[in-house]
Amino acid sequence: MFVKLINKSHHPAPSYATTGSAGMDIRANLTEPIVLEPLGRVLIPTGLYMELPFGYEAQIRPRSGLATKHGITLPNSPGTIDSDYRGELMIPLINLSREPFTIQDGERIAQMVVARHELVEWELVSDLEDSDRGTGGFGHTGRE
C-alpha cells in the first residue's frame, strides 16, 4: 500500500524495524529537548503530514520500552488519525513515573499502525440474538 507523506522533519520517514513489525516508529521533531515532569502531559510535533486512503486509519500506540522503563505513554492510547486529516501528526505523551523524563529531538516516541476500518450503518432492532456469554461483562470469563 502506498501512503502520501510530507516529511518536514530532519529525520527519516517512519519505517518498520523488522520484516514482522506491525508498527513503525515515530520520532520527535524538536528544536530543543522537552522535560516531561511526573504526571505532566505534552503534545510532541513530528514534522509528518500524510494522506491515508479512504477506509484506513493510523493508530498511534505507545512504545513498550518507554512505557516499561520510564512510564512514558499516550493518554489516549491508541490514538486515531483519520483518513481526511491533513495536519501535522502530533503525539500526546504523559509521564506516569515519579521522575522527570527528557524527550530529545529524534527520539522514538510512539508507534504507528495503519489499519483498514469499516463504516457502520446501524440497523435498529428490538431484540438481539442470544449468545453463550449473554450479558456477562467485566471479569465474566476470568473466574469460575
Rank of each mutant, 00 (worst) to 15 (best):
S77T: 11
A28E: 03
Q104R: 11
P38G: 06
V35Y: 00
L52A: 06
G136N: 07
L52S: 10
I44Q: 05
G87A: 08
A115Q: 13
V125D: 04
N76K: 09
P78L: 13
R63C: 07
E57S: 09
Y85D: 03
E88S: 11
D25P: 04
Y85T: 03
A110R: 05
G55Y: 12
F138G: 13
L30W: 04
L96T: 14
G106C: 02
R98D: 15
Q59H: 12
T73R: 10
I81T: 10
Q59F: 00
T68V: 15
P45I: 02
G137N: 02
E99L: 11
L128Q: 09
N95E: 05
Q104S: 03
I60F: 07
A58F: 03
E57N: 06
L43C: 02
F54I: 15
I91R: 04
G79L: 13
D84F: 12
G40E: 15
G65H: 07
L124G: 00
V35K: 12
M24D: 05
E121P: 11
G40K: 08
L74T: 06
S83Y: 15
V114R: 08
G47D: 06
S77D: 06
K69Q: 14
E123F: 11
V113D: 10
D105C: 10
E37R: 03
E37L: 13
L36N: 10
L66E: 04
L43R: 12
L36T: 04
L93Q: 10
S131R: 10
L124S: 05
I103E: 09
T135I: 14
E51L: 03
G71T: 14
I109E: 06
P33F: 02
L96D: 00
F54T: 14
S126N: 14
G134L: 07
L89N: 01
I109A: 06
I81E: 06
G87V: 09
I34W: 09
V42N: 03
T31N: 12
D25F: 06
V42T: 15
L119F: 14
N76W: 11
V35N: 07
A115D: 13
K69G: 13
G40T: 06
E123C: 07
M112L: 03
E99A: 07
M90D: 03
